[in-house]
Design a protein around this nucleic acid. Structure first.
Ligand SMILES: [Mn+2]
Ligand SMILES: [Mn+2]
Ligand SMILES: [Zn+2]
Ligand SMILES: [Zn+2]
Lengths: 141, 141
DNA sequence: TAATAACGAATAATAGTTATCTATTTATAT
DNA sequence: ATATAAATAGATAACTATTATTCGTTATTA
């Protein structure tokens, strides 16, 4: 699983370092769409000398070589996702969690837009907002 | 047209000031989805003493009372839109302009998501990315 | 018109992100 | 294995969008 990352980094002219592999692994093993700060905190115990700037530089590289995608769900910071397939996201406005929406047909919608817009389409992001199951169970504080 | 804004501000307990009306008017008369900085610059000649902080406070109020919506199209700043109807947006990755996508059926898509997610849905934003007609005409620099 | 609550402008502060600099590490060729 | 050159990590400073604070001014209401 890391072989693919290693190979792709080298192929694109980037060096393979433990920090980069670790940062990718955090994203690949998470469904929580962590922010740079999140990633940094998760790796603190294992890479106590790593700086936040390294996280930012690394996610930029990972995005460039197509290993991750960057999300901007209307928050004050970006989130990162190792699942680069096109899928909508939903954010809980109470607790802030961001989940995937799978098994949704997005192609009909995209096709409709492609037909009507004079733009040449290259990508899209779909963000839904609401209240997650956990927060629905809680009394509204 | 300003009567509605005036009335709504008062009704919600906010005072009606020339700055607020001017900021709303900029948004209502624009299809460019300006940022706070854009709004500020447009009003500079007419309100040379107005500060950027006033723009930020005002758009926050306008959002709260439902007169505008806030967009986050993956840029480093927010954009504001006086058209509060739910409509997708498309951003040109070359020149940065953000346009509306009208006459698109979004309800089928939203309905599909509402059925499948355990979240209680309250809103959504759809962002498309691509190359606008103007930039397509240009040689790729 | 006077009282009062809200406001605008100026300023400082905050937070996410990016740039710079240098010792260290990786990749590659001996 | 070792040497060499290029790229990197970490430390730090800088930058930018946004928010908070303060205080003299203004809009509202009676
Ligand atoms: Mn995802
Ligand atoms: Mn719009
Ligand atoms: Zn929640
Ligand atoms: Zn363009």
């Amino acid at each position: 699983m890391e072989n693919r990352v290693t190979a792709l980094l080298r192929e694109k002219g980037f060096k393979v370092t433990p920090q980069r592999l670790a940062i990718y692994k955090v994203l690949a093993n998470s469904k929580a769409h962590p922010s740079a700060e999140n990633i940094f905190q998760q790796l603190q115990p294992y890479y106590p000398t790593m700086s936040l700037a390294t996280v930012y530089k690394t996610v930029e590289i990972l995005k460039e070589i197509g290993l991750i995608q960057v999300l901007n769900a209307g928050e004050d910071s970006f989130r990162y996702d190792a699942d680069t397939s096109m899928h909508p996201h939903i954010r809980c406005l109470q607790c802030g969690r961001v989940d995937d929406l799978h098994d949704i047909d997005i192609n009909t919608f995209i096709g409709q837009v492609a037909e009507k817009t004079p733009y040449r389409l290259t990508g899209q992001q779909f963000y839904f907002y609401g209240c997650c199951p956990v927060c629905q169970g809680k009394p509204a504080n």
